[in-house]
């Protein structure tokens, strides 16, 4: 190699670094933390831009969850009159709470998968830790969720549920869910960045997950059904599903009648769900961050 080795040696001797190398984990985390203002501002700006084309603008942020809830009320409440063994007037708040909370995870995963691909111009223009993007997309969904939560509170109170101190438990539940969603979003962001096909597949995967997660039925109730009762392991597996854990914990926090139904009528213990929730949050967040970081220098290339 006619003297080329010496040029590389010269560069390293002068303290220059390979420009396509990723920083060590520690300084990467510091960089992400330093971009926290960017992450928040990016999320807010995207959220605002989402509705600028429509005449009603920001009103849609409230209208979208409201219409969602209305559709469920129309179909399950008025047309089918389902209650699935739940106490009267519990099913609609139960369903709407489940849908809103699960939607947060669903949307984080789906937008996370697009977060790198949709921002190639930004990635190629400016230098910043790429993990900011999936993080920002989860924040966008969190902001949407907070608006949906206000709508949910109105519905829950409207169906006669009492306002109790247990509602405060919703805060740690959502914090765990945010961590879990960020982790999922980071994993999908890396997969989606190099394999665009995943975006076509995700809607089907997410819908299957939704049906397994006890959103439109009560898993606690199902576990008491004779078929599953003889194979308790099915219940244990379904119960450990993070999609279910956060939804169920949210319901137990804000729906007094549902809490009573699960604890007193079904005699089900739910404390272990907190450990599931915490475990999933920490493991998925740490693994997701590490997994995304491992490909940091390859995003936005080509």
């Amino acid at each position: 190699m006619n003297g080329h080795g010496s040029l590389a040696d010269f560069a390293t001797a002068q303290g220059l670094k390979q420009s396509a190398a990723r920083p060590p984990m520690g300084s990467y985390i510091r960089q992400v933390w330093q971009r926290r203002h960017f992450i928040w501002a990016f999320a807010s700006a995207k959220n605002i831009a989402m509705y600028t084309e429509s005449r009603l603008g920001q009103v849609w942020q409230v209208l979208t969850p409201l219409l969602n809830a209305a559709v469920y009320y129309l179909i399950f409440g008025l047309l089918l009159g389902v209650s699935r063994g739940l106490p009267r007037n519990t099913f609609i708040p139960f369903l709407v709470c489940g849908v809103f909370v699960f939607t947060f995870t669903q949307r984080s995963v789906q937008t996370g998968a697009k977060s790198v691909g949709d921002n190639l111009s930004l990635i190629r223009a400016l230098h910043f830790p790429r993990a900011s993007l999936p993080l920002a997309y989860t924040i966008i969904e969190l902001q949407q969720l907070l608006v949906s939560m206000v709508v949910l509170f109105v519905i829950v109170l409207g169906f006669g549920e009492p306002l109790t101190l247990d509602w405060l438990l919703l805060i740690p539940v959502l914090m765990m869910q945010v961590l879990f969603n960020v982790g999922m979003s980071l994993v999908l962001a890396r997969i989606g960045a190099f394999n665009r096909d995943i975006q076509q597949l995700l809607p089907f995967i997410m819908r299957t997950w939704l049906y397994f997660s006890g959103i439109i039925y009560s898993l606690s109730g199902l576990m008491k059904s004779p078929k599953i009762h003889h194979h308790p392991w099915i219940g244990h597996v379904l119960e450990a599903n993070p999609g279910y854990v956060y939804v169920e914990l949210s319901r137990l926090s804000i729906l007094d009648s549902y809490r009573g139904y699960v604890h007193e009528k079904l005699h089900e213990q739910t404390d272990h769900l907190w450990w599931y929730g915490l475990g999933w949050a920490i493991v998925v967040f740490v693994v997701g961050f590490w997994f995304f970081f491992r490909a940091e220098e390859r995003y936005g290339r080509g």
Partner: peptide, 8 residues
């Protein structure tokens, strides 16, 4: 604002 924040 976003460009400047992204640059750190």
């Amino acid at each position: 604002v976003l460009g400047c924040l992204a640059m750190g």
